[in-house]
């Protein structure tokens, strides 16, 4: 119990210190307010577009291909190496995972995205 008391004092002290710092800076620091101060920071330039960019829906196909042929390998490789340690439960998990991605593969084949002419 002794050690937890020390931790409690530490947490209380850190709160008190932070509180004192905030109060001190509110009381002492000079402040001004203006329009330019409230502008969003863009290295000093004026912001001209929204930061949320809309991507074209056509990129969905590439995203699915990337998931199937890249991400899947990354997850399958460590599973295959340590299969003997992980046991039968991991096999069920990875089957569900592959099953979900298989739907994507069927979609890609139906859309004829794997034909490179």
């Amino acid at each position: 119990m002794q050690e937890f008391g020390v931790i409690f004092i530490f947490i209380m002290l850190s709160f008190i210190l932070a509180f004192c710092m905030l109060i001190f800076s509110i009381l002492c620091a000079p402040k001004t307010k203006n329009k330019v101060k409230e502008l969003p920071y863009e290295c000093g330039n004026i912001v001209n577009t929204d930061s949320r960019i809309k991507y074209n829906i056509q990129f969905l196909n590439y995203a699915i291909l990337f998931l199937i042929f890249d991400i899947e390998i990354i997850f399958l490789f460590p599973f295959a190496i340590s299969y003997e340690i992980l046991g039968i439960f991991s096999l069920i998990e990875i089957t569900i995972f592959i099953g979900l991605l298989l739907l994507g593969l069927i979609y890609v084949i139906r859309k004829k995205l794997l034909r490179f002419n």
């Binding site: 402040k31 101060k37 000093g44």
Partner: peptide, 8 residues
């Protein structure tokens, strides 16, 4: 603008 955005 950068100068104005700095805090006092």
């Amino acid at each position: 603008r950068l100068y104005e955005q700095m805090a006092e």
